[in-house]
């Protein structure tokens, strides 16, 4: 064996074999990368959004993600790759709403990419375009009516009591509704419809 020289042609062949061992998976319909990279650039302009640049696609986030453990199609690393390539279809994808914002990915990320925030930004893009899942709308409407994202039931209150937690009191529903109305959000919320429908993601 001579370590200083190598048979390049053989090496190339092996490298090729390795790289494309999984090539049958490749989707043959190509997608275009938008020439202005608008989506990516918009994300980069937002606070925390610029941490996206640091992503080197190691996939640790996907390994850490509790959702990915249950649902193979939920892949934070792949979501970031789509953002990097300015693939707006991500923002239209209902899947990103499954994110729990548990921040496991962010804690593990070796390059300190703010992954949950970037996904939130993608959701915002989706919202702006009307890509809102019914659950999100329901939540928002519950805030208007209850002052909370969820309705508090009697058993919940009892459990809190048993655990010795302080009383929740009643939220300032009225003031909240007025404040939101002043911002024009109430009107928006009333007119918006989920394009996904409301059944699937419960």
């Amino acid at each position: 064996m001579n370590t200083d020289s190598l048979d390049t042609s053989r090496l190339m062949r092996n490298q090729f074999k390795l790289r494309f061992a999984k090539c049958e998976l490749i989707d043959l319909t190509p997608s275009s990368v938008s020439s202005d990279l608008e989506f990516r650039n918009w994300i980069l302009r937002q606070p925390e959004g610029k941490t996206l640049r640091r992503c080197y696609q190691c996939g640790r986030c996907t390994g850490a993600c509790p959702i990915a453990e249950i649902d193979q199609s939920f892949n934070p690393r792949l979501f970031l790759e789509k953002v990097i390539l300015a693939d707006e279809s991500l923002a239209e994808n209902q899947l990103i709403w499954t994110c729990l914002t548990c921040e496991q990915c962010e804690v593990r990320c070796p390059e300190h990419v703010k992954i949950p925030q970037i996904l939130i930004l993608a959701k915002v893009r989706g919202l702006v375009a009307g890509n809102t899942p019914q659950t999100a709308l329901d939540r928002a409407r519950t805030i208007l009516s209850e002052g909370r994202t969820i309705q508090v039931s009697d058993p919940m209150l009892k459990t809190r009591d048993k655990m010795g937690l302080p009383s929740l009191g009643s939220p300032p529903v009225k003031q909240l509704a007025e404040a939101l109305k002043d911002l024009g959000l109430v009107e928006k919320l009333e007119n918006i419809e989920s394009i996904y429908g409301g059944d699937r993601d419960e």
Partner: peptide, 11 residues
């Protein structure tokens, strides 16, 4: 070992 195979997008 828990790892994503990024080339097949499989966890």
């Amino acid at each position: 070992t828990i790892v994503e195979d990024t080339e097949s997008q499989k966890r």
